[in-house]
Design a protein around this nucleic acid. Structure first.
Lengths: 128, 128
DNA sequence: CAGTATCCTTGGTGATACTG
DNA sequence: CAGTATCACCAAGGATACTG
């Protein structure tokens, strides 16, 4: 809708890259968004942790809070014992995912050759 | 070309998100890739620094090295005094940029409403 | 189960100084 | 100009223990 902003000054706090993308594109957020998009059902905290085994409880919590803050997910707590909390992605996330999926696809397609380049690069660095 | 890999195990070192995207999608790399894609001519070190004023020399250097390692940019040093070094994006970067640009566009379009949601969220947190 | 609270570590980052 | 080297710092992140 509103589209007056452009990336004139990369330093500006208005810079969409710094202000929006940097909060999505970190390691954990990408993995959480990807995981939630795979199931299209809401997921429980524990289920997310199982899907991303090496994320700590603390990091999962804070990642979820940030995503919730920016309207990518909704947190629903049920007054049960034991407690049940479900996270589901929003319309906003749905509109973002095609672009992220395109990126994931690109990464899958190019990973092998990137890894090869990386090897060549370090090999060159180590030769006498 | 080769597309046998998929994201079964997010923990795997073969995970394209962790292995490829995480190295692109950090704050500085995104800004450098964006800047280089704006000029389609090669850019000098100093020019990049001017475009991203708050990046330190050290961070710019290491970001450029990582991007070079993964084949997104090529570094060309000219044997002159004073030295001249130019960085230009590669075919690989060119194939990536449309996806990143889509992401930038999305961020521009949604930034305002995201900022609004963020305000609402913190307001709710602070109310008694 | 789904967290919060606390402590503690470490590496990402900046600042400064120096060099080819 | 385009870096490298060094030091220093602080916040991101992990580990552990505790709680509604």
């Amino acid at each position: 809708m509103t589209n007056p902003v452009f990336i004139r000054d990369l330093t500006s706090p208005e810079c969409p890259i710094r202000n929006v993308l940097a909060r999505i594109a970190d390691k954990w957020s990408l993995l959480v968004l990807y995981t939630l998009s795979q199931q299209n059902d809401p997921m429980r905290f524990k289920a997310l942790q199982r899907a991303i085994p090496d994320i700590s409880q603390k990091m999962l919590t804070s990642t979820l809070r940030t995503l919730e803050q920016d309207g990518f997910i909704v947190r629903k707590a049920y007054a049960e014992v034991p407690p049940r909390v479900e996270y589901q992605s929003t319309e906003r996330a749905a509109s973002l995912m095609p672009h992220l999926n395109a990126l994931f696809g690109w990464a899958i397609d190019h990973m092998q050759s990137i890894l090869r380049d990386r090897e060549v690069y370090t090999a060159k660095g180590n030769e006498s």
